[in-house]
Design a protein around this nucleic acid. Structure first.
Lengths: 360, 360
DNA sequence: GCCGGGGCTGGAACTAGTTCCGCCGTCCGG
DNA sequence: CCGGACGGCGGAACTAGTTCCAGCCCCGGC
């Protein structure tokens, strides 16, 4: 029942922009009475001319409310690929600040930033890397502490291989490079040196009995910071005493409970070094609750310099980590910058009110 | 100079998977000696069979390390579109928590979440909506306070129109619906009622001279919270006194300075309601600095219940906003759920140590 | 008047997938 | 022994763009 001359089209492809899903380049070209090639050239600004069709194309695009399909464009290799930011969790100043740094350079270079969380589940991480490869991201920023295990190294190599197949690269943020996998980029900051500096600061103030509150699992961040604590003691000629270590998860309630229990057995401690600011806050709360004055009786040092710790009473002495810079540097590599080997950014001790001279 | 029988290909399209950019479906099909159609069916799991070619396709895909191109798939309308989360800034618990809620439902439904910041610049916002439309996102979550102006309403309508053209929808998060634009979804929480509840709590404790610290600009969040303060006073039969309002930006330093200056002229105030927790922290610091006891001399109420304010000394009485729920609800609509009109989620007053009976 | 250069244009190939439709072969029932 | 049902498979059309190449027209120079 086709009319003569009518081209039989399959599906429900009625011509014209009313099809749904918006006007396409073909619709614009039809309305402007030019070919798709010409319409594409005009809209991409690749037609120098001021010809009549030039103006007709622009008018048609305007009239139809044409929005170029970035997916189709990306398929031709034109257009910018997204950058993925993968962390175990999104809340907390650490990740948000890093993400902010990465986002800054991403948008400045015309890329979008995709944020994904794994909840710390390796299976979800594997699935995520697969999905992101399918979506042809330009790079994956794998952010935060990871297991310090051979299993993780193998997993990371698998990620890197999968991503390399689609022309993307893997960038670790906030953990050290994997020595046997130089192709996996790493932007880290000085966890170990930061805690060491905190201990040295306490030693200068005359402290000798310095406790450590933190987690001792095999994740890179806790481990490196714990090593920094031992470094600091060793540098000052103090013996490392395992009994002066109180284990705690990264939650202020947990740190408060651990501190209370710890102090029962060790009333002679005059300073506490904390793995994170979140823990430090819990430590301070526990000290307040027991009527112990900070810093007159016990000094406290944190790590991260998260928002608000400067507003505590007393304000918290802590180590400022360059989260924004880490994100920015990683972003720069992600958008195609050179990678000259692992980066370890310096940290800075911020001395505030929670540390003071040792009593006596 | 072509050899006879050799098909002349344009560009550098040497056949085989070595071309760069990874193996394609055509490469897999070639290796498995089947058509692209068959390979596609097998890899999509749409081939029930256990035929010989079925196994050959899977083996070929494995051997070549085939990763399906999600862009090409999306172009066919298959595959999940991303969801965009647009806010002025990423740091701060507000946005991160909301983003977490949205990300939860996004990933649970197979979507990715793209995070973008505008820095509060309308031009960047406009450009971003355009870019996101081009990338064919499923929805845009426009997050946070916005100008309470007619200009913003027009702009939002433009966003909504652009997005509608590509089948996406606009969802406002954390600000009220625009009455004249019912197609623009809104998931908000009760700014105004929250502050009102805070004031009522103070009134019950006997306070009569209650100050307000906050910004008075024309953004929706500050404005609504300011109205809530006035509501609370009116409900208690107290007159609103403009002199009891101290202006401050949303920064603790600014709030501390504003509070110090304000107290010079108003020593009789016994309670301070703050627009945000960040400001409340600054207010508390200023009170500490002047040797004013909290809550014995002055009570303080915040808003947001951000991380750590429960760990201050004294812990902060504040209004908990359901950020995660807002993100979750918005995410649900973004992935295709029904929108039954504007939602205003309830907030909850969390009474802690910073509020107590009025002195005398 | 003819030829060549230059700019604009359109046809067609190309990106990498999905899916409709029809063909073919096999198997089983009548 | 033949017909129909059914499953697997391949050709081709389709998604929405970009870009190469050839052709056309127009204008200027000889």
């Amino acid at each position: 029942m086709s009319l003569p001359g009518e081209v039989s089209t399959r599906r429900t492809t009625s011509p014209g922009p009313e099809r749904g899903g918006g006007a396409t380049l073909a619709d614009v070209a039809r309305l402007a009475d030019v070919s798709r090639a010409t319409a594409s050239r005009v809209l991409a600004g690749r037609a120098a001319g001021k010809s009549a069709s030039h103006a007709r194309v622009l008018a048609a695009a305007e009239e139809l409310g044409y929005v170029v399909n970035g997916l189709a464009r990306s398929m031709m290799g034109v257009g910018r690929r997204s950058i993925a930011f993968v962390s175990s969790i999104m809340v907390g100043p650490t990740f948000a600040t890093m993400a902010g740094g990465a986002e800054d350079v991403a948008t400045a270079n015309g890329h979008l930033l995709t944020m994904c969380t794994t909840g710390g589940d390796p299976d979800r991480e594997v699935a995520l890397i697969e999905t992101l490869s399918e979506q042809r991201v330009a790079a994956v920023l794998l952010v935060g502490s990871t297991p310090a295990t051979e299993e993780f190294a193998r997993r990371a190599q698998r990620y890197s291989d999968t991503l390399a197949r689609v022309g993307a690269r893997l960038i670790l943020c906030g953990r050290a490079a994997l020595p046997d996998h130089p192709h996996i980029a790493s932007i880290d900051y000085d966890h170990r040196g930061g805690v060491r500096t905190g201990v040295e600061h306490l030693v200068e103030l005359g402290h000798r009995r310095i406790a450590f509150v933190g987690s001792l699992d095999d994740m890179t961040t806790p481990h490196q910071r714990f090593l920094g604590y031992q470094d600091g003691l060793a540098g000052a000629g103090l013996a490392f005493d395992p009994a002066l270590t109180a284990q705690s998860d990264n939650a202020s309630d947990d740190a408060a409970a651990a501190t209370s229990a710890f102090l029962e057995g060790h009333p002679d401690v005059t300073a506490i070094v904390c793995q994170t600011d979140v823990m430090a806050v819990g430590v301070c709360r526990a000290l307040h609750a027991r009527g112990i004055a900070i810093p007159e009786q016990i000094s406290v040092v944190g790590f991260d310099d998260m928002q608000l710790v400067a507003d505590l009473t007393p304000s918290l002495t802590t180590v400022r980590a360059p989260f924004h810079d880490v994100g920015e540097l990683a972003g720069r590599i992600a958008v195609g910058g050179d990678y000259d080997g692992p980066a370890v950014l310096p940290v800075e001790l911020i001395v505030r009110g929670s540390t003071g001279p040792a009593p006596h």
